[in-house]
Simulated assay, not measured.
Amino acid sequence: MSGSTEGSSSASGDADAADAGGTDTADTMRERAGENRVKLWLLLRADRLVVAAVLTLAVFVAFVAVAVAISPSLATKVGSSDPVETLFASMITAIVTGATLVVTIGQLVLTQENGPLGDQRDRMDDTLAVRDDIADLTGGPTPTDPAAFLDAILGAAAGRARDLRDSVAGQGDDGDESDRDALRAEVDDLATGLTGNADAVRGQLDGAEFGSFDVVFAALNFDYGPKIGQIERIATEHDDALTDDERGLLDELKATVSLFGPAREHVKTLYFQWALIDLSRLILYAAVPALVVAGLMVTVVDAGTFPGSTLGVAHVTLAVGGAFAVALLPFSLFVSYLLRVLTLAKRTLAIGPLVLRDSE
């Protein structure tokens, strides 16, 4: 994983789309991570509510299966003792404690947005300074939409890579022509990989809306770290063959590609805050029905509440399993969101030309 670190590929064929754009499939996170498409789709691309629903259903099925398989059965135990009250009394405590922790998490997120007027002014000045730098490199006003913001940087980087390739294709200063041939080969490889990767990601950014993970998901596919390293290697190893103008183009290309790193990290940070706020709200919503169900199970359910059976499964077992799954819904939501956030954080640990994975 590099500073770009591992861009990503969806189950619907983003890796194939990247290939169609002319980029090496190693630029996508699925290829660089060496993990299968389904796993990455589950961790990153799948709707978090769907993942939480699947986890809840899995808990219900597992609970019922084990309860039916063990001896004596849950229905027998309910008739002779009171495991339901014990179980759901503990669940009520866990739900209340979990909801309180969620509020704390929400407060930690919001504290980053609070501060005195001077601090807010400094934040604004720093943001505007970076936007001015991007405007200078892209040759136009910096977009305010996150997807267009990243797209502008990628477009400028691709344009400079093409300019560099065109310049190197011509005659250089007097010197060994073999050095120029080696330089042309290196620059052509750089330009082909960079422009293909950038164009593919720009296609994924087109129409992406912030808050739905689409913007961050697309941005992960631009593997900028190795590209910065390749630019530095060309500047060092082929310094004698480069003209002054070509050195200037290399410097401009490096500066433009380097801007993508902090820009993507900024968008990623905003997404983290957005996701944690959504998670906090959803857990608080889910905590209310979970508490109601747990309270009803403690106060109402006994051996005679759900008589009979279906397909050999006692109705009381189904009721307790369903209630247990509902009571765990806040935890399922927490797990589903945390899987995405932690996976994203792991694959973007480094910023800059550091490769935290096996690489040639």
Rank of each mutant, 00 (worst) to 15 (best):
I228N: 06
A191R: 01
T127K: 13
D133P: 03
L318T: 07
V61P: 01
V313N: 02
A345H: 13
D214Y: 07
F324N: 02
A303K: 15
L205T: 11
D245W: 05
T111S: 15
T348G: 02
A345P: 05
S8Q: 12
A52I: 02
A294M: 00
I92L: 15
D179T: 10
T256N: 01
V130N: 09
D19V: 11
A182M: 01
A147V: 00
V102D: 13
A255N: 12
A314R: 01
D14M: 11
V64I: 12
W41D: 15
G211Y: 05
A323Q: 00
V216P: 01
S4C: 12
G7V: 06
H315L: 12
W274K: 14
S4F: 12
R347G: 07
G304P: 03
V301I: 03
D278I: 08
L279T: 10
G175M: 05
T269D: 10
T269A: 13
I351G: 11
L40D: 13
A200C: 08
V187S: 00
T25Y: 07
T192C: 08
G13V: 08
L333W: 08
G295W: 00
A286N: 07
I228Q: 08
V50K: 08
D24A: 14
G229K: 02
G229M: 02
R45T: 12
L249E: 03
F324G: 01
K268I: 11
I105G: 06
G3T: 10
P116C: 04
I277K: 14
A89H: 01
A345L: 10
L164M: 09
F334I: 06
G203Q: 08
T348A: 08
V292D: 06
G139F: 09
F213N: 13
R48M: 03
L296N: 09
V267D: 00
T23I: 12
E265C: 04
E31M: 10
A191E: 01
T138Q: 10
P72C: 08
V313G: 06
K39E: 14
A345V: 05
A286C: 08
T5W: 06
E6C: 13
V216S: 06
I228S: 05
G21V: 08
E232K: 14
A314S: 12
I105W: 04
V355G: 07
A263I: 06
D214K: 11
H266Y: 13
L110N: 13
R45S: 11
R180K: 03
G203P: 10
I153R: 05
L250G: 01
D302H: 09
G193I: 04
V59D: 08
A62G: 11
V316A: 00
L349V: 14
F63A: 14
A11R: 11
D251N: 11
S178E: 14
T28R: 12
D145C: 09
Y271Q: 15
E360W: 09
D136V: 13
D240Q: 09
L205I: 12
V292N: 07
A152G: 07
V102M: 15
F63Q: 07
T142A: 01
D119H: 06
L108R: 14
R48D: 05
Q230P: 04
T269Q: 11
P353T: 02
G211L: 04
V341M: 15
L282C: 04
R131Y: 11
